[in-house]
């Protein structure tokens, strides 16, 4: 049986933990809302860029572009996006497990990580990431994404990599998120998942009449890298929202269990306290009885003495 001061100490420590988890829950909730706002904005940008690229491809015949044509090589580079911190439920584990599974049978020549959890995951496996971008997972910044994509597209241009893929967590809603992989280079226009209902063709005007200034090829040249930057930025924002959402749920659970535990401990504390009191009373009564008995015995003995 634990003693009272042990339980009291335990309750205190659980209360402190609860305070922390509760605070983290609030913070993640606020951050998630901010990230959701970002997702909305980014979606508009990305889909418009994608629409224009599809338009150009549809209406101006065959245009080949180094970023669209496939290469026979098998050298794959991966970008893995995970969190900056732990304590976010299954978020980090899920995305890293997917990345591991995907990389198993491929010739991975370069590995880029965003978020220190991802970096440490690979360092522990003995694979030093070729480059890691810290703090980007916590505060997605467009110019940093641009710098990163410049490095990667240059590698692609030089032929050091034949494919560029990204593994991140897609935010679906506050209750569900899904780790997923997306091929970035070469660009496959069809496999970018659309959230809007597909098949709605905008027929409001004749799209073959669009004027491309100065030429469709040049517009495409300028647009593809921008679309990629937009996508990667979006992916990071998605990951950020997912991380915070996951953490929010985890912390909510933790707070709830802490409450339960405090209840249980308090009950235990009371029963131990009661038991101690009972024991003390029993002791006192026992002692009193004993002393009474002793007195009675003594007086009996003395009275016998008198008789003699």
């Amino acid at each position: 049986m634990p003693n009272m001061s042990d339980i009291r100490f335990h309750i205190k420590s659980v209360k402190q933990t609860r305070q922390i988890t509760n605070a983290m829950h609030m913070v993640s909730a606020a951050r998630m809302r901010r990230a959701l706002d970002g997702i909305q904005k980014n979606r508009a940008y990305f889909y418009r860029a994608l629409d224009i690229i599809v338009d150009i491809r549809c209406h101006t015949g065959d245009i080949s572009h180094p970023y669209i044509t496939h290469r026979s090589g098998k050298k794959v580079a991966y970008i893995v996006v995970a969190g900056e911190k732990g304590l976010s439920g299954s978020y980090n584990h899920a995305v890293l497990a997917l990345a591991d599974r995907l990389m198993e049978n491929q010739e991975v020549v370069a590995l880029y990580t965003i978020g220190s959890v991802a970096s440490f995951h690979y360092i522990r496996q003995g694979k030093q990431p070729d480059r890691h971008f810290e703090r980007l997972a916590e505060k997605p910044k467009l110019d940093q994404v641009r710098r990163m994509m410049t490095i990667l597209t240059e590698q692609y241009d030089r032929g050091e990599i034949d494919e560029l893929r990204i593994v991140y967590t897609r935010f679906i809603n506050t209750l569900s998120r899904e780790p997923m992989e997306q091929k970035l280079l070469p660009v496959e226009l069809n496999d970018f998942k659309r959230q809007q209902v597909a098949g709605i063709v905008d027929d409001s005007y004749d799209r073959t009449q669009i004027l491309y200034d100065p030429s469709p090829t040049q517009v495409l040249d300028a647009l593809i890298p921008q679309m990629l930057i937009g996508y990667v930025y979006g992916a990071i924002v998605h990951a950020y929202a997912s991380e915070n959402c996951s953490r929010m749920a985890a912390m909510e659970n933790a707070t709830r269990s802490a409450d339960k535990m405090i209840d249980k401990l308090t009950q235990q504390y009371h029963s131990v306290r009661q038991l101690t009191i009972t024991n003390e009373l029993a002791d006192i009564i026992g002692a009193a009885n004993a002393s009474n008995a002793a007195q009675a015995a003594q007086s009996a003995y003395h009275s016998e003495d008198h008789k003699r």
């Binding site: 224009i52 338009d55 150009i56 005007y205 799209r207 009449q209 669009i210 004027l211 491309y212 200034d213 100065p214 040049q218 517009v219 040249d221 300028a222 647009l223």
Partner: peptide, 20 residues
Amino acid sequence: NTIAGSIGVLADHVPMVSAL
């Protein structure tokens, strides 16, 4: 400013796409 030079757009412009 587009890659082809600076342009101005008024209402009823012909449909156009250009890179900035």
